[in-house]
């Protein structure tokens, strides 16, 4: 391939972008109903966000996750072609207290009394995807998926086939949170070393007392090791190894 010939200033071959405005995006309710129309059987829930950021999100079900993601990417009105941020969140078992006003008769008078009920929500792991559109320049649409539990078999379907940008980020979630992504092309640990066994971003992770411990035979380690190993022979036997014929 011939090299580009540059006359005068090298900048001449490049162009500047036109300043085209952003598209208006549909509301989450509209997106939800359109997903449910396009992906039969998909169960979508809107997760409200109480923060001033007003970034509500869509909770998608795991069975239809890939189909839903594909719809979001290819739909001409949405075109969410840019998956910016993928991350995990660990939610432990928690108890939510709800206060309901109940009418009861106290000493013959009808009164409204606060009644507190406790609801136990089992823990789960969550994967959160922040989607934007580079074509229409809108976003974010936030989708999240939840695992059934926090056990070692916590599984979700990988969205890497839909958005390549999830490749390293899903590996990072697998590494630090322990969510297995089905359909990921190369699911390995990414930041921790391969022999590491735990998932350090989990909320109940306990750091080992000594990261650097290794069983090198010196000092007190050697003294303890003596109990476990048979006594060493006087000679290590190296002088008896003959050179290969």
């Amino acid at each position: 391939m011939p090299l580009r010939n540059l006359e005068g200033k090298a900048a001449g071959s490049l162009d500047f972008a036109r300043d085209d405005g952003a598209w208006m995006m549909e509301s989450l309710d509209q997106i939800k109903s359109r997903i449910e129309g396009a992906v039969p059987g998909a169960k979508i829930e809107i997760v409200a966000n109480g923060s001033p950021s007003q970034q509500d999100s869509l909770l998608i079900d795991n069975e239809h996750a890939v189909a839903t993601a594909r719809f979001l990417r290819v739909d001409p009105a949405l075109r969410l072609d840019f998956c910016s941020n993928v991350t995990g969140v660990d939610w432990l078992d928690r108890v939510v207290k709800k206060t309901i006003k109940v009418k009861t008769v106290v000493e013959g008078v009808e009164k409204e009394v606060d009644q507190t009920t406790e609801e136990k929500i089992p823990g789960y792991l969550e994967a959160v995807y922040h989607l934007y559109s580079m074509t229409h320049k809108h976003g974010p649409v936030i989708i999240r998926m939840r695992t059934a539990d926090r056990a070692e078999c916590a599984r979700l379907s990988s969205l890497t086939p839909v958005w390549r940008s999830a490749e390293f980020q899903e590996r990072e979630i697998y590494d630090l949170y322990g969510i297995h992504f089905d359909g990921h092309p190369d699911l390995r640990r990414i930041l921790m070393w391969d022999e590491f066994e735990d998932h350090p971003m989990r909320k109940d992770y306990v750091q080992p007392d000594d990261f650097e411990w290794e069983p090198t035979p010196h000092d007190d380690v050697l003294a303890r090791a003596k109990e476990h190993y048979p006594p060493r022979p006087q000679l290590d036997g190296a002088e008896q190894i003959a050179a290969p014929q």
């Binding site: 966000n49 109480g50 923060s51 001033p52 950021s53 970034q55 910016s84 941020n85 991350t87 969140v89 959160v128 922040h130 974010p140 936030i142």
Partner: peptide
């Protein structure tokens, strides 16, 4: 103490999109 909720903010850092995702 920010109110309970979450936010994702991003800027055009020299290397690309730098974002912070926070849950309070």
């Amino acid at each position: 103490r920010p109110p309970v909720g979450e936010a994702y903010g991003r800027i055009e850092a020299p290397k690309g999109e730098l974002g912070f995702y926070l849950i309070s």
